[in-house]
């Protein structure tokens, strides 16, 4: 059974990691250097936050709009940590490392191992987290170098790859009517606000939709 967990974890690590190519390209297209783009993946290491930060900058938004959007998207990792900490029972630097690789995928694979027992849960977490980290960073570098040598982003379709990446990130979450309503309302609100607020703020403002729709059970 342990072999099956490891296989699940590695397949997630490689496929999600390969997605790093899209981020690497998006970072360079938004005007970040190859080094800065790679540092995003090494330090922030949370796909949605990273795409949001470079997306807002690429759209002409200010630094605090970019940071705010990335931070709001990072809050869910805190809640994943709350779930994972008692299952992992780590101390000192291993706890810090566990926190750093606490993302959608590592938490998802770990919690999906429940029927295989606690050892498999831990193995799923570590193998997924560390393999996504490895491949995400390698592919970020590849994407950043590739985008730099390609030239005009539009002629290679990179400007359309970014919204497609966001759609791919949100799609698996649209599982309930309330979630779909939140997605639709946010899209409308963002487009309505865009012409009248500074660049980037239209995105952050949609956090109001989450608060309003999440207020009551």
């Amino acid at each position: 059974m342990v072999g099956a967990t490891r296989r699940d974890a590695l397949s997630v690590g490689i496929t999600v990691g390969a997605y790093g190519v899209a981020f690497g390209a998006a970072g360079v297209v938004a005007g970040f250097s190859v080094l800065q783009t790679c540092l995003f993946s090494l330090i922030t290491f949370s796909g949605a936050s990273q795409f949001a930060a470079v997306g807002v900058i690429g759209a002409g938004g200010g630094p605090w709009g970019a940071i705010g959007a990335a931070a709001l998207l990072g809050t869910r990792n805190a809640l994943y940590g709350v779930q994972m900490a008692p299952l992992l029972e780590q101390r000192s630097w291993r706890k810090v490392l566990a926190a750093h690789v606490t993302i959608d995928e590592s938490t998802g694979v770990a919690l999906a191992q429940e029927s295989r027992g606690l050892a498999a849960t831990r193995e799923g977490f570590w193998w997924t987290g560390l393999s996504v980290y490895l491949f995400w960073n390698l592919f970020t570098l590849a994407g950043a170098l590739g985008a730099r040598s390609l030239g005009s982003p539009a002629s290679w379709g990179l400007d359309a790859a970014v919204p497609a990446a966001f759609l791919g990130l949100v799609w698996p979450r649209l599982t309930t009517p309330r979630r779909r309503a939140a997605a639709g309302a946010s899209m409308v609100l963002c487009l309505v606000l865009t012409p009248v607020v500074p660049a980037g703020l239209g995105v952050i403002a949609t956090v109001v939709v989450a608060i309003v729709l999440g207020w009551r059970a």
């Binding site: 949001a52 959007a69 949100v170 939140a182 899209m187 487009l191 956090v207 999440g214």
Partner: peptide, 13 residues
């Protein structure tokens, strides 16, 4: 709901 709202907004923006 926060990631759903922000990611959806990022799709259209």
């Amino acid at each position: 709901l926060v990631p759903i709202a922000l990611l959806s907004a990022l799709v259209v923006s």
